[in-house]
Design a protein around this nucleic acid. Sequence first.
DNA 1: CTAATTCCTCAAGTTAACTTCACTACAAGA
DNA 2: TCTTGTAGTGAAGTTAACTTGAGGAATTAG
Lengths: 163, 163
Amino acid sequence: MKTTPKLRLRPTGLTIGFISERTGLAPSAIRYYEEEGIVHPHRTDTGQRRFERADIRRLSFVMISQSLGFSIAEIRTALDSLPANRTPTKADWQAISESFRQKLDDRISQMTKLREQLDGCIGCGCLSLSNCKLYNPDDRARTRGTGPRYLMGDSPSDLGQDA
Amino acid sequence: MKTTPKLRLRPTGLTIGFISERTGLAPSAIRYYEEEGIVHPHRTDTGQRRFERADIRRLSFVMISQSLGFSIAEIRTALDSLPANRTPTKADWQAISESFRQKLDDRISQMTKLREQLDGCIGCGCLSLSNCKLYNPDDRARTRGTGPRYLMGDSPSDLGQDA
DNA sequence: CTAATTCCTCAAGTTAACTTCACTACAAGA
DNA sequence: TCTTGTAGTGAAGTTAACTTGAGGAATTAG
């Protein structure tokens, strides 16, 4: 507490290098996140970025969320719910956490459902699309009106025997 | 059973257009899958692709697997375990299914674990990387020896108060 | 036999999430 | 002050999984 440990932490704010060390993110990634609106560092009069301590938390949240499978867009949306005028409190973060937890629950149960049908559906004949529960009903069902599609092969009455 | 319903199904094999209709995949996607070694149609003397009925099943498997989050590379690897000399049997498919089911189980339990720690870790101070269980320990832990990283912000004794 | 389809190939474009590069500009310290 | 070391910018490259487009050949319908 004499003069200062490293200027990079001092009056103006935290440098990108410091943030990079603390989060493990490459400076290029951090700049990218700024472009994506995930962090909003201010600039010195000479144009260098200066971050706040709270940005470390933001960026850590990004890393964690990504490892949970969320996209940058989703993460930005979540972060946008944090207050802009004051440093987010524990309660602010918990609200985000709760929302993500909900989404995760949904994904997990969705995956679980699909997994449970995997055996039966792949193992069996699984002839018609409309019967195949594994075929995601939302994604691409009835994309065209070309007639019935048969997932997993062989329609019942197409050509008698297999080719 | 007179002359033929559609030439595209007849002697030489199934055309890409037919496969496209049946699976819902764009021809461009099917060609891409060929490049990626997921299907191996033979060619007519004039160079057109001819598929087998079993390819519909292969491609359906690809679609299902993708919706479960598997990459083309993983899917190709799985499909490579199918016999090349004969049409895969139900048992062949079940073996693949079993292996994918296992991987899914792993992913689900991993996600579940992370989700359970989400609340606590984001909500709390979660100061040091080494204490933060949410921070994927395999991915990027100790990338540099630059000293301890602090996830989710503020290290205990860095600068007294918040910036 | 024509005309309309369908198919082929190859190159380039697309989105996400970044990295790498080339150059320039500031900042920190001996 | 002079020299590193960091920063900054903008453009282009990277991987995955495809799509789009250009230009040409086969097939199928009438």
